[in-house]
């Protein structure tokens, strides 16, 4: 029998009210398994704030602070400052926001926290749109996607700009650790969190969290969607430690992006020509990632 590598203690209750097949709930569950119960979590508006349940309930067995949409990182900084003021050193502080709350409205506060180097863990659970409000495009929505504010229509009005690269933005802040992870690969995610959690400074995780409701796929396919995103390298697995890139999981053979796109209703309008643009962009990003890993490895300590 294979050895269990993920802690068994559950710090997130199963009684949350997330959608069937929600990827984001898994991100929270694995994160807390990796950090343990001496952890405080702050969450902004978004799916995660609703999943927690209605007053007086909470879905976490650790302290949980609901905060305003754009304040996740500043709030985590405030919790850390208070703990420091009290001399409490053995508690992890987590900001856990969606892609809208992180890459759009919360990016200013996050940039401030990262630039100051505040000792917190920030997790962006990425479901690639404003899902809680009903699938509006965010800066993390990928090129080509339908959303309710990129409704395709009769004019081909799908999202025309690529996804904002949050890991690159965070690396530019010279933080000790930034990484991608996926709810489809919990061992990889947990390992990365355990590696980074005691580093001093701001740690950033971009966690791929498929959303059956917003991406228009069947809820039992959430994990498969993450697997395909990895296998196509639409969403590669890597980490950046003090500026040094390392690909943490590499698919033996990259699958064509169509295998990922064709299972999702949000991409069903795409013609072959547009899919080709997506494939070329994914190819380029993958090659650039490998080149960065190759180029920066000499700086590894």
């Amino acid at each position: 029998m294979a050895k269990l590598t993920i802690p068994q203690e559950e710090l997130m209750s199963s009684g949350h009210i997330g959608c069937l097949g929600c990827g984001a709930t898994l991100a929270m569950r694995y994160l807390l398994k990796a950090l343990g119960k001496r952890t405080m979590v702050t969450i902004p508006a978004g799916c995660i704030a609703i999943m927690s349940g209605i007053y007086p309930r909470s879905f976490l067995k650790v302290p949980l602070l609901d905060v305003a949409f754009e304040t996740t990182a500043a709030s985590a900084s405030g919790i850390r400052a208070a703990l420091d003021a009290k001399g409490i050193k053995d508690v992890y502080v987590v900001g856990f926001g969606g892609d809208g709350g992180t890459a759009d409205i919360g990016i200013q506060a996050l940039s401030g926290t990262a630039e100051r180097g505040d000792n917190i863990i920030y997790v962006m659970y990425d479901n690639e749109a404003y899902m809680n409000t009903g699938i509006q495009r965010s800066s993390a929505t990928p090129f080509g996607a339908w959303t309710t504010t990129t409704p395709v229509g009769t004019t081909g009005d799908f999202k025309k700009r690529p996804k904002k690269n949050m890991v690159e933005i965070m690396v530019a802040h010279d933080i000790p650790y930034a990484a991608t992870a996926s709810v489809s690969y919990p061992e990889d995610f947990v390992k990365k969190v355990q590696k980074a959690k005691d580093m001093d400074g701001t740690k950033f995780f971009h966690v791929f969290s498929p959303c059956p409701t917003g991406w228009r796929f069947s809820p039992e396919m959430t994990i498969q969607m993450g697997v395909l995103a990895y296998q196509t390298t639409v969403f590669p697995m890597y980490e950046v430690e003090n500026g040094v890139y390392r690909v943490t999981k590499k698919p033996a053979k990259r699958k064509p992006v169509t295998e990922y796109l064709k299972l999702q209703g949000r991409f069903k309008h795409l013609d072959d020509e547009t899919i080709e643009i997506i494939q070329k962009n994914v190819d380029k990003n993958w090659e650039m990632l490998l080149a960065k890993a190759e180029f920066t490895k000499k700086y590894a300590e």
């Binding site: 405080m40 702050t42 602070l65 905060v67 305003a68 754009e70 304040t71 990182a73 500043a74 709030s75 985590a76 900084s77 405030g78 919790i79 400052a81 208070a82 703990l83 420091d84 003021a85 009290k86 200013q108 506060a109 940039s111 401030g112 630039e115 100051r116 505040d118």
Partner: peptide, 27 residues
Amino acid sequence: KSQYIKVESEHSAMAACIAASATGARA
């Protein structure tokens, strides 16, 4: 003896004060 967070905006100043106060610190 204070933890002094030099925030990037007043919005974050109040957000950080709120979180610190909720964690039991005078802000």
